[in-house]
């Protein structure tokens, strides 16, 4: 009797948590369709804010910049990260453990510290603020994620397949291209999507590294919020959250993240 009651209470708890997690996001999305600029109720459906969004040059440029940086981050981080994962998988060498441990500072240290440190260093070497600096920072943040995801997939790879290919006369490049890559491809795709998401959603590091004139979308949103915001920001935020959730859903499919299969 009490077991059943507990199980039911547990499920209610789970539902409450899901409401807690999703309600604000849903409300924000709903408000972007509300005609009132002061979020007043009753709700009156309107697409005005999306129309206004499409004419807002600052937001549009920032959005294009954000997507561009995220795509570039994705390509660079995936290439470098996959290469590094392959090296960790294939070779035994001294210092391997240290190198793998070094992947954690970029993930574990608060972005505030990493971001300000990058600002100081990039200024010191003359790179300064701006899109190139943001890109350099984003790739560094995304790299550990790519390496972790691709390495997880490589861990399921049967090493003797590479040996078999070599025994059949295939050189390192052929082995990689025809045997290893086809197997780890789902991991590489998932890693790439993670990299995209890390960059596209990144605020802190972008905030310190971007020039006022060429802000990324999250930086623009932050400054707008602090100035006093309009539902236009709701509209763009809604779009962002839909994109980033969609990207992560696809990534989860590929990496089999949390799946039992």
């Amino acid at each position: 009797m009490s077991g059943k009651w507990l199980a039911r209470a547990g499920k209610v708890w789970l539902v409450l948590i899901l409401i807690f997690l999703y309600a604000p996001i849903v409300i924000m999305g709903a408000m972007s369709f509300n005609a009132s600029p002061f979020y007043q109720l009753p709700f009156e459906f309107s697409l005005n804010w999306y129309a206004a969004l499409s004419e807002n040059d600052a937001i549009r440029t920032a959005a294009i910049r954000s997507v561009g940086i995220a795509l570039a981050t994705m390509v660079i981080a995936t290439a470098l990260g996959t290469a590094a994962s392959l090296a960790f998988f294939r070779y035994e060498f001294r210092g391997k453990f240290i190198l793998q441990t070094l992947l954690f500072p970029p993930i574990a240290i608060p972005w505030l510290i990493t971001g300000t440190a990058m600002l100081i260093f990039f200024f010191g070497i003359g790179l300064g603020r701006g899109t190139p600096s943001v890109l350099v920072g984003h790739v560094a943040l995304a790299l550990p994620y790519v390496i972790v995801v691709v390495s997880a997939r490589l861990a399921t790879f049967d090493r003797t397949l590479e040996e078999a290919a070599r025994s059949l006369g295939a050189g390192a490049w052929t082995v990689t291209r025809r045997v290893t890559l086809p197997w780890i491809m789902p991991g590489v795709v998932a890693g790439a999507l993670f990299a995209f998401a890390v960059s596209f959603d990144q605020f802190v590091v972008s905030y310190f590294l971007s020039e006022p004139g060429d802000a990324t979308l999250p930086v623009l949103i932050y400054t707008s919020i602090r100035k006093g915001f309009t539902p236009e920001i709701n509209a763009v935020s809604t779009i962002i959250i839909i994109i980033s959730m969609a990207v992560m859903l696809v990534a989860a499919r590929f990496s089999n993240f949390g799946g039992d299969r």
């Binding site: 996001i25 924000m28 932050y222 915001f229 949390g258």
Partner: peptide, 19 residues
């Protein structure tokens, strides 16, 4: 449950401002 964690944190904080 994990999905929101991987979406934009700034936007999620902003959504609380509205609520």
């Amino acid at each position: 449950i994990i999905l929101p964690f991987w979406s934009n944190s700034l936007v999620r904080i902003f959504s609380w401002a509205i609520v």
